[in-house]
Write a protein that binds this DNA or RNA. Structure first.
Length: 676
RNA sequence: GCCGAUGUAGCUCAGCCGGUUAGAGCGGGCGUUUCAUACGCGCUAGGUCGGAGGUUCGAGUCCUCCCAUCGGCACCA
């Protein structure tokens, strides 16, 4: 079996860890622990992205050097992973010398292939910031977000990577590696993106200094993705010639299997740019890229404006680290979007962990074993086995196999499902065999068998949950009187044979493994997190507040559609000379979802009903800034649908290379007035 | 607008290559045990399988169209 190498994204050091970053890090940790358990060599990398202008700025704002700043900002990440019991083998920071050096080595390799050339990069530039901005980053009206001043269109010298050259090679590569990107639907998106053709990629900047100097041209620093992506290699000491970097030789393909866990937002960089860089450098691409989805919180999107970023530490403190890990792995389908719901977490804690597994251990260990066997695990006689034991045993092995299969396919939620089938089977077994009745009747021989069977299953469960809940797994083993699990290479510990539990072992019954939360405790837990109970989304709730958003535009278009039928004399664009211009007052304005440029306006043009106009000015005007304005519209333009929304008319605007201004009237004129 | 995915019991979801009475978990209801963390176990819920056509002896399961939701791309008034 090839060594296993798993990575999380390197997180942007400017932020703090939140439930989303915790999710990918925990997933990587679970996979690593699982592979080790199976006797496979495994390495887990996480780290931080510490370069870029934003960092330099933030540092400056605090009166620190960028290095001092990132040295400080890295701590919450290290602490968070420690708190969450995630144990990466390496933690790379892009500001480390080892990274800079290897990133430059990768650059050189690619440059030697002739795939990097000097060109010009053009974008919006703010003199005040000495920075380029993409149109998306600008405030309406092409205003610099920092200085509130207009930006200029400017070119700077930049190195480019010949990405265009790799369009076909990438498509060929995808063809040969049908599992390169997971889930498959995401892979399709990647492919169709590449199929449309790739443009060369700007990979350096001269407008800021906080980055890795380009080899041979220190005026330039590497642009973020070149720098960032190379961390996966640099942390292994690569790229390097064979024999020079043992980790690289061992873990990177073809000798190892490398899996990148990424969020769906950065999939393109990993699935397109990264393999292209590697192809160019004559290196192997990673084995697989797993794009996981986004987490909402109690049905709501996490966003800066809502200020509802969920941080993992308080959750771990209130519910327990392992419970949080379990919940995240159990409730979210890996690769799909999921919802973090406090109510669901507590439901799973009580139902599956406390009542299901915790109580299973307790109901046998705390009573029967103590009373009938003086706290020792009994040694059953084979003759006392019945079909119930056969059934339980085969269930145990079946579930163990199923769970392993699911984990091999990176489906932690399904693996846990399979494991909990065994929890159910074990509880049923106890009910059917009634150990308490056997004890009463003094049938000690049979009781030995029953107790042993249950505890053997519990032992197996302890092994299987250990990647997910390492501490609880140890606690469970401790209560069974077993030593901590020690994973070693080439030694598969996953349950595959019955009877691993040594009879005669002195057990150590303790507190319930997973204390149950009663209603009051649930309320208290939520209170400690500053959450009101009705803010959570119980699994059974159907009152999700996602609807009004979708309904609004619908109502509007209905209204304006009727207005349209009354409005005859429509003309086409070619008949522009016949244009009918009117003054209209903007009643409402909002962005068209999923569109960068379109605004949906509702205007009063002096008619019975307001009309809807879709205007391509979103990059120049904030919706709020338009409300109340008297603008001039083309009132009799033939209605047309834009992104599914009916536009009845056109907003007149003047534009030059500095930006765009909607036309308005100088005086106070009634809406609907004709403009001549 | 183009491309893709999804739409199955109150909730979350399984249902492979079309085939007997459409499933699981949770929640709800009923019952039951008493070893256990008032835990467990059993039974139950009568869901137009988004809608309409079609192919077929037979369709959640294939085809067409429509609707809704979500993504990717595109962006024009």
């Amino acid at each position: 079996m090839k060594p296993f190498y798993v990575t999380t994204p390197i997180y942007y050091v400017n932020d703090r860890p939140h439930i989303g970053t915790a999710y990918s890090t925990i997933a990587a940790d679970v996979l690593t622990r699982y592979q080790r358990l199976r006797g496979r060599q495994a390495r887990f990398l996480t780290g931080l992205d510490e370069h870029g202008l934003k960092i330099a700025r933030a540092a400056e704002a605090q009166g620190l050097t960028p290095q001092e700043f990132t040295d400080k900002m890295q701590l919450p990440f290290r602490e968070a992973w420690q708190t969450l019991n995630c144990q990466p083998d390496d933690f790379i920071r892009t500001t480390e010398p080892r990274h800079k050096e290897r990133a430059q080595a990768l650059w050189k390799r690619i440059a030697e292939r002739g795939d990097i050339y000097l060109g010009e990069y053009e974008d919006w530039y703010c003199v005040g910031c000495e920075t380029f901005y993409t149109e998306k980053d600008l405030l309406p009206g092409n205003i610099c977000p920092q200085h509130q001043r207009p930006v200029e269109r400017i070119k700077e010298s930049s190195y480019f990577f010949r990405l265009s050259k790799y369009t076909q090679p990438l498509l060929d590569f995808y063809e040969k590696h049908p599992d390169f990107v997971k889930p498959a639907a995401r892979f399709n998106e990647v492919k169709s993106f590449v199929r449309e053709g790739l443009r060369d990629l700007s990979v350096s900047r001269t407008s800021f200094r906080w980055g890795i100097p380009v080899p041979g041209d220190p005026q330039h620093v590497m642009y973020v993705w070149f720098d960032a992506l190379s961390n996966y290699l640099s942390a292994l000491g690569g790229p390097e010639e064979p024999g020079q970097a043992p980790l690289f030789d061992n873990y990177w393909p073809p000798s190892g299997e490398a899996m990148h866990i990424v969020g769906k937002d950065i999939l393109r960089f990993h699935a397109v740019y990264w393999p292209a860089f590697l192809l160019s450098a004559g290196l192997e691409a990673p084995t697989q890229i797993w794009a996981h989805g986004w987490l909402t919180v109690n049905g709501q999107k996490m966003s800066k404006s809502l200020g509802n970023f969920l941080h993992p530490e308080p959750l771990a403190e209130v519910f327990g680290v392992d419970v949080l890990r379990y919940y995240l792995m159990r409730d979210m389908a890996f690769g799909q979007d999921g919802d973090f719901s406090h109510a669901n977490l507590m439901a799973r804690l009580n139902g599956e962990l406390a009542n299901g597994l915790g109580n299973l251990l307790n109901r046998v260990l705390a009573s029967v074993v103590q009373k009938s066997f003086a706290g020792r695990i009994p040694v059953p006689a084979p003759s006392t086995r019945t079909s119930e034991d056969d059934l339980l045993q085969s269930e145990a092995l079946r579930c163990a196999t199923a769970a392993a299969e699911q984990l091999d396919h990176v489906a932690p939620q399904r693996a846990l499902e399979a494991i909990w089938e065994l929890v159910g089977a074990a509880n049923r077994y106890v009910d059917r065999t009634e150990p308490w009745a056997l004890a009463k009747r003094g049938e000690t021989e049979r009781l030995s068998q029953v107790v042993y069977s249950v505890l053997e299953v519990v032992r197996m469960l302890g092994v299987m949950i250990s990647p997910f809940m390492p501490s609880k797994a140890e606690e469970l083993r401790h209560q069974l009187g077993l030593d901590p699990l020690m994973a070693t290479v080439s030694h598969d510990l996953w349950p595959s044979v019955w009877g691993g539990l040594p009879g005669g072992t002195l057990t150590r019954p303790g507190k319930p493994l997973f204390p149950r939360l009663d209603k009051d405790e649930e309320r208290a837990a939520l209170a400690r997190l500053g959450i009101t109970p009705d803010a959570t989304t119980p699994a059974s709730s159907d009152q999700q507040p996602a609807k009004p958003k979708a309904e609004k535009p619908k109502e509007k278009s209905k209204v304006s559609e009727t207005a349209a039928t009354e409005n005859d004399g429509t003309i086409t664009y070619e008949d522009f000379a016949k244009v009918e211009l009117r003054v209209a007052e903007v009643l409402t304005a909002e962005r068209v979802p999923k569109s960068d440029k379109l605004l949906q306006l509702s205007v009063n043009a002096g008619e019975a009903a307001p009309r809807q106009i879709i205007a391509g000015i979103a990059q120049h005007y904030a919706p709020e800034a338009l409300v109340g304005k008297r603008i001039i519209i083309v009132a009799n333009l033939k209605p047309r649908k834009l992104m599914g929304l009916l536009s009845q008319g056109m907003v007149l605007a003047a534009s030059d290379d500095q930006g765009l201004c909607v036309t308005t009237v100088a005086g106070d004129v009634k809406p609907g007035s004709i403009v001549k």
